[in-house]
């Protein structure tokens, strides 16, 4: 981790949620809140102005919801900022749609502050899925059932296919390295290769692609 703190933008239509989050996150040395917004549209302005690393995005908001705002942010620049969706309930239908729109992961608003802070760091680093089990279950249950067929994905090497399978299984780079007896650097290279071939900007998008293509099946 570098010395400069991660720049965050908080987006939620409730002032109380925003002010609470701000105090909680400002307490961490490696995080700084550079802006906040109460609507999706406002979020786009604030993000353009303050160059955040991660946007914490509520889903349901007046005047452009979190899904549309996420899609717009991703369309502007696929690499920065990354979007972490904040949700009240884990079985929210909107949740999957926000992942599909390009969010890198989601966290529950009720989660422990340490977990939340952790999720932000994971999203910024991109070396693992956030809430791997929940994310996998959410994606698997929302992608319409496909018959298994690895051919549907662009030509991954055998190693890359192994790596993708483990990524979709929720393993972090370190865990994959241990499982496949590879160095972390090699795993990182393979993951980058997979993302490039799938046209995915991060692991979450790669997992969605893996399920949508039928490469991963229930």
């Amino acid at each position: 981790m570098t010395g400069t703190p991660l720049r965050l933008v908080l987006v939620d239509d409730d002032v109380l949620v925003r002010s609470g989050l701000r105090v909680i996150l400002e307490g961490e040395a490696d995080l700084t809140v550079v802006g906040d917004a109460g609507t999706g549209r406002e979020a786009l302005e604030v993000a353009a102005r303050s160059d955040p690393d991660v946007v914490l995005m509520d889903v349901r908001m007046p005047d452009m919801d979190g899904i549309a705002a996420t899609a717009e942010l991703v369309a502007r620049d696929p690499q920065r900022p990354r979007v972490l969706v904040l949700t009240t309930f884990e079985d929210d239908d909107y949740l999957f749609r926000s992942l599909q729109a390009g969010a890198s992961g989601f966290a529950l608003k009720r989660s422990d502050p340490d977990e939340l802070v952790d999720a932000i760091r994971v999203v910024a680093r991109g070396t693992s899925l956030v809430l791997p089990d929940l994310t996998r279950r959410l994606i698997a249950s929302h992608v319409p059932g496909r018959t298994r067929g690895a051919a549907a994905l662009p030509d991954l090497t055998a190693r890359e296919a192994d790596v993708l399978r483990l990524v979709a299984g929720g393993l972090s780079n370190a865990e994959i390295a241990a499982r496949l007896h590879l160095s972390r650097e090699t795993v990182k290279t393979h993951v980058s290769g997979v993302l490039l071939k799938l046209g995915a900007r991060d692991r979450t998008q790669a997992v969605i692609a893996a399920y949508e293509s039928g490469f991963m099946a229930l």
Partner: peptide
């Protein structure tokens, strides 16, 4: 409840 929780945590 969510708003209250975050306020309480922050407090």
């Amino acid at each position: 409840l969510t708003a209250s929780l975050l306020q309480a945590t922050a407090a």
